[in-house]
Design a protein around this nucleic acid. Structure first.
Lengths: 134, 134, 134, 134
DNA sequence: GTGGTCTAGACCACG
DNA sequence: GTGGTCTAGACCACC
């Protein structure tokens, strides 16, 4: 399970962590009952402070997606996959919508926007493909 | 000239104002030599404090896009259109790229992402079209 | 009588005008009983707004250096030369003191400061000489 | 590291803070990688509001002299010493030049100006010496 | 009327 | 604890 964090995004890091865990559960990379990486394990992986990770986990726990197993760690709940699949769609769609609303407000023509979108879309797909090869 | 500000975006309001003015100059809605709305005029239009607007203007001045006419207001510089057209492309592209990178990291399939993008794209275009009809 | 105004100085323009008139009286360029340039005459000479000039004159009148001759203009008072010679010394000395205090706080060595001062001193003298030749 | 701020100067306090930090880096009092005083620490030291200090730091960050260490403070960048040594010279020279230009425009003779300068120069040097003795 | 500066204090994100 | 953002409102310089 990779965590793709964008430090220069205006989106707070703890929210990005929440999103990444949500994506992991939605995609099945993190399965029900599985222990997710501990705060101390994840912090260096995402180049963040342990407190920042802890805050993300706290939020995930509050929304019922993970639960504390005392002395063991945090575990993916049974209800998580369903919650996370819906949430994933919502997060991705919202972010895309905001970006496109801004693009529309820039007075670039629909054609230019479409061109930009296509360029970036093939770029991320390209990136994914090359990653899959490794 | 409309100012499209998203108060719930993680992007700071003053940066959104910077972007909107940049878009206005890039699109020609704000012309060289023209006085842009005063701090006190714009603040209620974007539902922000005059100081927040002033900070945005300060940043635009620093980048050479507008210049202070003492006692009169802020004027669009001759160099602004060129600077702003480049900057517009950069802002829009960056925002789209971030949204699509996140989408890619969500493990949604390229097809699903494309579908979401198309839905949102037609939605903003639709919004524009309906605006134009009014 | 020349008016040497520095628009990029942090010193307000109206204070610079006050200083320049003071200097003119101290040096004898503006004599007792002489009418000084009207607000409307001076404004374009110093590239300032008439109100700014008016404010400077108001301040000079308050300090007894010039007086209104109704229907004629502003006149240099009998008491002015003495007042202005003292004031000139004070203005010049204060400005030099502030600049040198800042230089001292920069941790440049006294030798370096002395060198900077000498360079600038010969520059302004050189400037004056070339002006005198015209 | 002392911060020498002149509240009655026409130079804005935040610019004076920028200058003082620049001087500190140029002189080596603030070293690369070192955390500079926090906004909340410096504010009472210079008798200014934390926001005024923050504005100065923001400007220093913009010019690449300091960088934010999230949650820790502001750090002197590797590029800073070179930038600041050049900037220091420029700041000091500009301020001296403006003071001497004004002196020249006062019609005081070069000899009188030189005398004033020497008096003030020995005064600040004297101040420094007496400080060093303490 | 304009923008520029400063003080003041709130809240947030992050460590 | 740190800096970043925002609101709020004062005063100033200039037009």
């Amino acid at each position: 399970m990779l965590f793709d964090i964008e430090p220069n995004s205006p989106v707070p890091i703890y929210e990005q962590i929440v999103a990444q865990v949500t994506f992991g559960i939605a995609s099945g990379a993190l399965e029900v009952g599985m222990l997710i990486p501990s705060v101390r394990e994840l912090a260096p992986m995402v180049l963040a402070h342990p407190n920042t990770v802890a805050r993300a986990y706290q939020e995930l726990e509050r929304s019922g997606v993970i639960a504390t197993r005392r002395g063991k760690g945090m575990e993916v709940t049974a209800a998580a996959p369903q919650l996370c699949r819906a949430k994933r769609q919502e997060i991705v769609r919202d972010r895309i919508r905001l970006a496109l609303r801004e693009a529309a407000s820039s007075q670039l023509s629909p054609e230019e926007i479409r061109k930009l979108v296509d360029e970036e879309l093939s770029r991320v797909n390209g990136t994914n493909r090359s990653r899959e090869k490794r």
